[in-house]
Nucleic acid binder design. Structure first.
Lengths: 349, 349
DNA sequence: TGGCATAAAGTTACCGTTAACGCAACGATC
DNA sequence: GATCGTTGCGTTAACGGTAACTTTATGCCA
């Protein structure tokens, strides 16, 4: 009943031809039983299916894809998987794509531009039906390749600038501005920015720019920046905050590039005896699942990752069906919690 | 200079033949310039490469995979991407595979057995060089398909039972036992277990079993279980803990299935006025990045996800090179923090 | 009963690449 | 200078499907 499972040279994988031979029909009939079942007699179809089941036949999509017109791969290029920054996007994207029988091929550039080019090339070599990629800022060669591929390209997470084709994201500069304005409304005046800002993380740079612009507009002193190129864990936040307050004791609010870094910042402030939010405010970005559970709970910005994933899937399907390119702005929310609530605190969230 | 980027029917994608024609050589020579460069004259090779660059040629791996012998896809099947449970494993696995020019194809079953079968089938249809999959407990048909595929299969995260081929993981029952024994050593006696335990999450079930067995061995009363089938966020933990202590006020220690749930449990205890760790201890599993940042900081178990990913990549490469199957036990650590430290607290971590 | 539409299966020709083989030109060897 | 191994390239035949035809069987109607 079970196929031979012996090690080594072993068993050749069954093909349509194996099935055809076993049932006594032509290869094409077997193929039809899969693709267009109602063109094959019920009884014959039954026998073919039985044979497939018995031999554990799995169609070879290399062959199918080469022959047929359309692929059902969607290439997904992210810049990070660490700390679930984009894991939730992939999760919902994949779930939504599954309904259209589209399969995700994942690549992770780890914020490395060379890797990005290499991985995009690698993904395109699988002749995907579409590509979804984090960000709207890519090396010129990457843009050229993606455009030349002649397939729908959906850029996620960010918007603005030169969109290749279609985009689903939000404006990171306005996130930074909202962070600044909230801090200012809470009476904070000496703003600082802390976190890891990689050279290739344009989104982080845009948020910082937005923050600085809003501070300038409000006639505040320059935002003090203390950043790193790498990492992004609580330990980094703790170190950066400690160093920051040593050189700039006047700081009364810290904006963090990520919640995870902010967790470390909060720890540093606790150790330094600075009261949050009374002496100093802390705001972050990302809506980590623990943000509401640290104490003081963390004010942060919540991007709707689930929605971005879902809308990206929608965009891909639309574009495959030749809907014209478009850009979707996804909303985000400022979640005010204790870490910036100097005024009467809101009901605990 | 740039290719035609016009919408619609547009541009046909360049093939080896396009390059060959343009350079004036045979298709095979172009192919060789890619696969075995030193069998082609330097000057000719240069011209071929220039043509490829100019036309933005990207090899078609559907064709290559169909013709050639080996594939460079590795199928990766995980049960979840939410809350970065396995994102870090994928991250390090992918990084390590990249060094061997292996490409990850990702599938996420979301703890759904039907999905698992469907996705494994889908992945196998790409004729991957190997498959890495979370867990050692799969539906019989999945096991049959994986065995019949005749490729290396590496089961990750768990060990024990019937391993299909090769495994890289740890024993979850002993994690549960370690949790119980730590609680007992700290003087806790009335143990409870809280969290979401999905029907298909055998690992969670094993940890719970281990916890119960250790409690029984220490002649403690039965572990009180209060679990859900779905979810796994702080809100769930908060609700479950509140309900638990209402019906079982005698409980003096709560083991949580995940850190994220534990964050909610801590919040519930704070609201209920129960002191942690004095009145009640809390221990969890997962080593979330925020575990050291909540207060009280969370005692938890740290599985080495990065190592599992790396060793899985190693195992895949070894097995592809016909090393015999093996099982690697990956160490995990009990990270003792404030939430269970009744005795003189350790130095703050 | 012949003619014709239709259903069900078979034939054939690719898809783009790689592998195995063939073959000419060339330098080295005895 | 005939023999031989190399180097460098071209030819041809797969790989496992799918799509477009073609063929054969079947039913229906005039």
């Amino acid at each position: 009943m079970t196929a031979d499972l012996s090690e080594g040279a072993g068993r050749t994988v069954p093909t349509l031809a194996s099935i055809a031979e076993r049932v006594g029909v032509s290869v094409n009939t077997v193929s039809r039983a899969l693709r267009a079942p109602n063109t094959v007699r019920v009884e014959l179809r039954r026998r073919i299916n039985a044979a497939m089941e018995e031999l554990n036949y799995v169609p070879n999509r290399l062959a199918g894809g080469l022959s047929g017109t359309r692929s059902d791969i969607v290439g997904v290029v992210v810049t990070s998987l660490y700390y679930s920054e984009f894991a939730n996007i992939i999760d919902s994207l994949q779930l939504a794509l599954l309904e259209h029988d589209l399969q995700v091929m994942l690549a992770n550039t780890r914020y490395n531009a060379d890797q990005e080019l290499r991985l995009v090339r690698s993904i395109l070599s699988w002749r995907p039906a579409a590509v979804a990629i984090i960000g709207v800022d890519h090396p010129p060669k990457v843009v050229e390749l993606l455009k030349a591929a002649g397939i729908p390209i959906v850029e996620m997470w960010d918007t603005g600038g030169d969109v290749i084709d279609t985009a689903v994201g939000f404006d990171h500069a306005s996130v930074g501005a909202a962070q600044a304005n909230h801090l200012i409304a809470q009476g904070y005046r000496r703003l600082a920015f802390v976190g890891s800002v990689r050279e290739n993380d344009k989104r982080a740079q845009k948020r910082l720019s937005g923050l600085e612009a809003a501070a300038t507009k409000a006639s505040l002193p320059d935002v003090v920046k203390h950043t790193a190129q790498q990492g992004g864990n609580p330990e980094l936040g703790e170190r950066l905050a400690t160093e920051l307050l040593q050189s700039h004791p006047e700081i009364d609010a810290i904006a963090c590039n990520s919640d995870v870094v902010a967790f470390g910042v909060l720890r540093a402030l606790r150790k330094l005896g600075r009261r949050v939010p009374e002496d100093i405010g802390v705001i972050a970005f990302g809506d980590n699942e623990a943000a509401s559970c640290v104490s003081p709970s963390l004010t942060t910005v919540r991007p709707d990752r689930e929605r971005i994933g879902r809308l990206t899937a929608e965009a891909i399907v639309s574009r495959i069906n030749d809907v014209t390119p478009y850009t979707t702005l996804v909303e985000w929310g400022l979640i005010v919690r204790e870490s910036t609530s100097r005024m009467p605190p809101p009901s605990p969230s």
